[in-house]
Design a protein around this nucleic acid. Structure first.
Lengths: 163, 163
DNA sequence: CTCGGTGCAAAGCTTTTGCATCCGC
DNA sequence: GCGGATGCAAAAGCTTTGCACCGAG
């Protein structure tokens, strides 16, 4: 049985506050989906999230999953990625360091990494073009130079630590 | 009447050579689509490319446009982007400096910029994770801090110069 | 009690596929 | 003439929408 990380209570508070601020209702579905997301270790798509919940006999509709994910993205508890060209990918966003992604073009595995120098580029470019940069997405597309294309994506680059 | 850039002859040669190498046929459709793309100044999606060609009474099917774009991407004459979550965006890739994109979240305008420091990050990360990084995609999502959200995307950052 | 939220199914959009026809080589 | 390429339309895949019902506040 997977346990929620220690900070999950805080996550729930953040979401509750967000709902309150936006005058939205605290439905069981919304919290169930949030739970399910924070039990997951890595990236996921809508379909696998939906199937997971069905498997646990928690019945939510796909429509609700889509709607709810939008809320989580809006309050920064979840990040939405568009790695491929179909099926958006999501990942939980609270309690994890800012990071970017490298995608193995051989096996489609996603590896995470951090590099503080990106922040400098972001600052320079924002200033130069006179835009206020809110966030970024840096993707490296790469070939694996090692035999093991099966590395654990989270473990390699950031040790799955909280921020 | 828009004119093809001076290097377009070279582009055609590259594509012709690519077709030869791959033992693919030099169909008029393929060259017509290539022409149309290189007449365009900025990013485009499949539908607008398709409509442009219909408007000029050049009849190609959507299927052919999709197939042909894949070929251009394969021989690096066109770059495919997935900025939003539907409708892939494309841009011509020959004769232009490597660059990245900033997307205005207010008006969805795409501004281009160059920063050589990205190359350093790419090298470091590739070495650290033991991957050979082939290419990257860096997107900044930003708010416009200026009144003119109507800036010309190409002109600002790179002056629309060739490499 | 109200009206926002949910579930279901249908619709929408982009992209892919199947197949008959066409044409480059 | 052979086999790849095209065009058309249908299918596929992800996401959104419409509508009746449900339930949080």
């Amino acid at each position: 049985m997977i346990q929620q990380p220690v900070f999950f209570e805080e996550v729930k508070k953040i979401f509750t506050a967000f709902l309150g601020r936006k005058k939205l209702r605290r439905t069981p579905e919304r919290f169930a989906i949030l739970e399910e997301i924070y039990l997951r270790k890595d990236h996921f798509d809508v379909e696998s999230l939906y199937v997971s919940m069905q498997d646990k006999n928690y019945r939510v509709s796909r429509a609700t999953v889509y709607n709810t994910l939008d809320l989580f993205v809006e309050c920064d508890l979840v990040i939405k990625h568009q790695f491929g060209q179909n099926q958006a990918q999501y990942e939980k966003a609270f309690g994890f360091r800012q990071h970017d992604h490298l995608i193995c073009t051989d096996c489609n595995k996603v590896v995470e990494f951090c590099d503080p120098r990106i922040q400098n580029i972001q600052n320079t470019v924002g200033e130069l073009l006179q835009f206020e940069v809110i966030h970024h997405s840096l993707l490296f597309y790469a070939n694996c130079t090692k035999v093991d294309c099966d590395r654990n994506s989270l473990a390699v680059a950031m040790g799955d630590k909280q921020a």
